[in-house]
């Protein structure tokens, strides 16, 4: 599903080139649950952003389902974001002005899904995540775990093939963190490909494979 070939990411300053990622080769198959681990500044988020088409590699090739994703244009990226990739973040990144229902609905609006269908899909997810009672609340009225639940709901409502999670539990205490990880695992078991970045060894255990990144280079890559 995802094939990275010799990916570099660097910034040129006046006298030297600073590498964030160097010669990264990575292949992720459909249905995998990959955890990227590594110390701060190792390039985990950058790698995730490149996979999510939010950032471009400085060199190397990236194939998303055999499509050369390092060559596609801005407009096509929007298409990928609409139909193939879902994101969740450490800081949840919900839209403060919209309530739970509207936040989850947003991606469908961009996919021009009809009102009735949107209603059904959102209701379905709210039900599944046990959040029906909270649908009219605003993000600042929710706990961190609940906010992340909403964020996940929003990420998966468009039925993406790939879910990218950047430290999804970083802002949560352990109980809520576990809940989120269990949910991700369940989604994976239902067929969703997931790539997550985390510091937490325990949470890495929920995945099927761990990739250890140190100073922009893959040090270890093993199945759990």
């Amino acid at each position: 599903m995802i094939k990275l070939k010799n990916i570099d990411k660097y910034y040129d300053s006046r006298f030297q080139r600073t590498f964030i990622l160097k010669g990264v080769d990575l292949e992720v198959k459909q249905g995998e649950f990959v955890t990227i681990m590594g110390p701060s500044g190792a390039g985990k988020s950058t790698l995730l952003n490149i996979i999510g088409l939010l950032d471009e590699p400085s060199a190397g090739e990236y194939y998303f389902w055999d499509e050369p994703a390092h060559q596609i244009k801005e407009k096509q990226k929007v298409q990928y974001h609409r139909s193939h990739i879902g994101f969740i973040f450490q800081a949840f990144h919900l839209i403060d002005e919209l309530n739970v229902y509207e936040n989850i609905e947003t991606p469908l609006v961009y996919r021009s899904v009809k009102g009735k269908e949107r209603k059904a899909l959102v209701a379905d997810l709210l039900d599944r995540f046990n959040m029906v009672a909270k649908k009219d609340l605003f993000p600042n009225q929710l706990s961190g775990g609940q906010q992340q639940l909403v964020a996940i709901a929003r990420a998966i409502i468009g039925n993406p093939k790939l879910l990218l999670a950047d430290e999804p539990t970083g802002n949560l205490h352990s109980e809520q963190g576990e809940m989120i990880m269990k949910l991700l695992k369940k989604l994976n078991e239902e067929g969703m490909t997931i790539i997550q970045v985390t510091h937490n060894e325990n949470y890495a255990g929920y995945g099927t494979r761990i990739v250890k990144l140190i100073d922009g280079v893959i040090e270890e890559d093993f199945q759990v």
């Binding site: 929007v78 994101f87 990144h93 919900l94 991606p107 961009y110 996919r111 468009g158």
Partner: peptide, 16 residues
């Protein structure tokens, strides 16, 4: 900007 970022990640086009 944050809101714009979220919306874009969720598939909003520049025009939208």
């Amino acid at each position: 900007t944050k809101e714009v970022g979220i919306r874009k990640v969720n598939g909003a086009t520049v025009r939208e």
